[in-house]
């Protein structure tokens, strides 16, 4: 007993009984549904939940569907314009909010920029619909893009501001000290350092626009159906392998873009 050679069993105080099981359950809960959709998209059986064999057929079928392609095209157009405009506006706002001395009403401005995140989507959808109808703007890609730009702003703003806040303010001051003017300091010092944040914000804004359903559903008109709205229509008519394949594609695009965005936002300055 006294001459023990083996190390005593470590009793880690950071371990709580059942916690790992709970966490495992959580991650299964989080990913099982997503993976299941992707899994079923390769099921050759039309009755979508009974697995009978592997097939890749649904993808060419879906990608050959003119309606799907038109919806996808609409989604890309909207997401591109909305995210680019929102990111430019958000970058300027983030510069205003982080450089120089602290402002009074800073909280108010930050709150307003986060407003689109706080207001329930259904309320925004109703308000935007009423607005476009009231000013007599026909519902279409333009109204969708305008509505998307609003809620894209906070998604672009947050990573850009985070990046700016993590940036050493004396870098900009050093540029001034070395005779750079405001514009030169921005383009030669701030912007190069800010790029990952801007790209990350742009990607996140692009994703939320691409995936948006509720607001789009309200402010889209005939001919301006986006991919999520189109998928919604498909789901309502029933569970089919085509829905699974389009859904899996949409999931894949989001997964890739968000991974890139999050990796970018984590990259060291």
């Amino acid at each position: 007993m006294a001459n023990r050679t083996a190390a005593p069993k470590p009793v880690s105080l950071k371990r709580f009984p059942g916690l790992a099981t709970g966490a495992a359950f959580f991650f299964v809960y989080l990913y099982l549904p997503i993976l299941f959709v992707v899994f079923l998209s390769f099921n050759e059986n039309r009755i979508a939940t009974i697995w009978t064999g592997f097939t890749f057929d649904w993808y060419p079928l879906v990608l050959g569907n003119a309606d799907v392609l038109r919806a996808a095209q609409n989604s890309l157009i909207v997401a591109t314009f909305a995210s680019v405009i929102a990111t430019m506006a958000a970058t300027l706002a983030a510069l205003a909010m982080t450089q120089g001395r602290a402002m009074r009403r800073q909280e108010v401005v930050n709150g307003s920029l986060a407003l689109p995140l706080l207001i329930p989507e259904i309320v925004t959808a109703v308000a935007t619909l009423i607005f476009f109808v009231a000013i007599g703007m026909p519902l279409g890609l333009l109204t969708i893009t305008a509505a998307h730009t609003v809620f894209c702003i906070p998604f672009a703003y947050l990573p850009i501001r985070a990046r700016l806040e993590g940036m050493d303010p004396s870098l900009r001051e050093a540029a001034f000290d070395l005779y750079a003017n405001e514009r030169q300091a921005f383009f030669r010092v701030t912007l190069p350092l800010l790029w990952p944040g801007i790209l990350s914000g742009l990607l996140l804004a692009f994703i939320v626009s691409l995936d948006n359903f509720v607001i789009t559903f309200f402010v889209s008109g005939p001919g301006s159906t986006t991919l999520p709205v189109y998928i919604y229509g498909m789901i309502r008519t029933g569970v089919t392998p085509e829905v699974n394949a389009v859904s899996a594609l949409l999931l894949l695009v989001s997964l890739v873009l968000v991974t890139v965005a999050l990796l970018l936002s984590r990259r060291e300055t």
Partner: peptide, 23 residues
């Protein structure tokens, strides 16, 4: 600062705050 904030705040006010008031 005001100039830099104008685009973002402008969009939010025009396409969010005004619509809410209209609602």
């Amino acid at each position: 600062r005001l100039a830099l904030l104008t685009p973002a705040m402008g969009i939010i006010i025009l396409v969010m705050v005004v619509p809410l008031a209209l609602m």
